[in-house]
């Protein structure tokens, strides 16, 4: 049986800013139906690589393939068109709009017929679809008509992830999705990621430096250090010490500082 092509294949990507090499040749492969974690300490190149995949910046050299097809993104819309949806840390939701309006912002559902032609939106339909999308992710908001401003942090994250799942047809990329959340809400968000994979059949790229999150949810992991990928493996075959060793460049360390800061 032929293996399906990876959803995302990054080969030898470099990025130079004047004399600084942010990325010095990164390889990354995200397979279909997997949660893939991209780990790295601060300054390892995570966010640079993320921005390249999202089309926000262009690489100096190297190639990117989406489902086997080479692509070159020059702006975020290119990446969105290729089926990549990004959930940024700031979520980018409009607080005075409802979840439905947020999910469909920029791609609104219009009323049928003449009214739609005149620019009238169908808020009921957007609200219904939003509830359905949130339900698929196992997340419920108190009401589809409540403003996002009155939702909790975990609920807002759910809205942002649902929005991405609606528009990302191949890959959902998330930047530190649990950074601002408490223990219970973190668990809920990790479940959102599992559901993206299991219910929606999507590939998920989780950009993080939170070790417990990664071990709880990821299938495979790639570790970046100083602009290079230094480790890619199945999470099941790894211990935290392996990962910390790869992140810091030392062999095996006791590593009190790295994982625990965010363990709670």
């Amino acid at each position: 049986m032929l293996n399906p092509p990876p959803v995302l294949k990054v080969t030898d990507v470099t990025k130079n800013y004047r004399h600084v090499q942010a990325l010095r040749g990164v390889n990354l492969e995200v397979r279909p139906h997997e949660v893939h974690a991209l780990l790295g300490d601060n300054g390892a190149g995570k966010s640079t690589l993320m921005k390249i995949i999202a089309g926000a910046i262009t690489p100096t050299s190297g190639t990117i393939e989406i489902v086997g097809k080479p692509v070159s993104f020059t702006r975020p819309a290119d990446a969105q068109q290729a089926g990549i949806a990004t959930v940024y840390q700031d979520l980018a939701l409009a607080p005075s709009l409802t979840p439905g309006e947020n999910l469909f912002l920029g791609r609104e559902i219009m009323r049928p017929g003449v009214w739609g032609g005149l620019g009238f939106v169908d808020r009921k339909a957007m609200s219904r679809e939003a509830s359905a999308a949130l339900a698929t992710l196992g997340a419920r908001t108190p009401s589809a008509n409540v403003e996002v401003e009155s939702l909790s942090g975990g609920q807002r994250q759910a809205v942002a992830v649902a929005r991405a799942s609606l528009w990302g047809t191949s890959l959902i990329m998330l930047d530190e999705p649990t950074a601002a959340l408490g223990v219970a809400q973190t668990e809920q968000v990790l479940n959102l990621l599992r559901r993206l994979r299991d219910e929606r059949g999507l590939a998920v790229l989780l950009v993080s430096h939170n070790m417990p999150d990664v071990f709880a949810v990821a299938d495979r992991v790639t570790v970046l250090r100083l602009g290079e990928d230094v480790l890619t493996a199945d999470v099941a075959d790894l211990t935290t010490d392996d990962v910390i060793g790869a992140m810091t460049g030392s062999g095996v360390v006791a590593a009190p500082a790295l994982g625990q800061g965010s363990t709670r």
Binding site: P142, N191, L192, P212, A216
Partner: peptide
């Protein structure tokens, strides 16, 4: 960190995610 990572998520928790 390792303890957390090693703890499997109970199936009930995974199934009954209700943000609200």
């Amino acid at each position: 960190a390792h303890d957390t990572a090693g703890t499997p998520v109970p199936a009930e928790t995974a199934a009954a995610v209700d943000v609200a």
